[in-house]
């Protein structure tokens, strides 16, 4: 068993979990934050993306113990006081979802991407968005509206 403490969505949490517990399992099963989805179990679909110390991470590729001491933000922690994050608003307004299963991962990846490009002063082109999201699969939308959503959010962020 591993003692794991971290900050999740601004709250300090502490649990004793089996050593092999993945961060995705920790969030979903131990903290009941089920907005982080598991689509492939093998770090290929991107449905499980969360932020660990400000960087987008596929939470099924990381052990909970590996995030010990870290600050983790999940899709549930993105809205502030009931006000949606601009990325969330953009996915809603631009029909960037159908079944919604990929959506939390897309949004968390999108937020990280826009923030990084802004911080580095780089232009977030459409080609860059597509390239950045090669690790996120959506089976429903054909991606068109997801790209639009991220472009829209980038303009609002």
């Amino acid at each position: 068993m591993a003692q794991v403490s971290m900050t999740v969505n601004g709250k300090a949490v502490k649990r004793s979990v089996p050593d092999t517990t993945l961060l995705s399992e920790f969030l979903r099963e131990h903290l009941r934050l089920t907005g982080t989805h598991v689509g492939c179990d093998t770090s290929q679909c991107g449905a499980c993306v969360v932020h660990v110390d400000g960087r987008a991470v596929k939470s099924c590729t990381m052990l909970a113990a590996g995030a010990d001491g870290a600050s983790v933000v999940t899709i549930e922690g993105l809205a502030k006081d009931g006000a949606l994050h601009p990325m969330q608003t953009a996915f809603n307004d631009n029909h960037g979802l159908q079944c919604g299963f990929c959506t939390p991962g897309m949004i968390m990846s999108g937020v990280d991407m826009v923030a990084r490009y802004k911080a580095e002063g780089r232009e977030l082109t459409e080609a860059a968005i597509r390239h950045e999201l090669e690790g996120n699969i959506c089976r429903c939308t054909g991606y068109h509206n997801i790209v639009k959503s991220i472009q829209d959010a980038a303009a609002r962020m």
């Binding site: 089920t34 598991v38 899709i75 969330q88 809603n92 159908q98 919604g100 959506t103 949004i107």
Partner: peptide, 24 residues
């Protein structure tokens, strides 16, 4: 009307429940 998906707000906040998300 071109309204968003009925659960759009739940999806973007991670609050939509699928079978595996239901508390047991």
């Amino acid at each position: 009307d071109p309204l968003p998906h009925d659960s759009a707000r739940l999806h973007v906040t991670g609050a939509a429940r699928y079978v595996d998300d239901i508390p047991l």
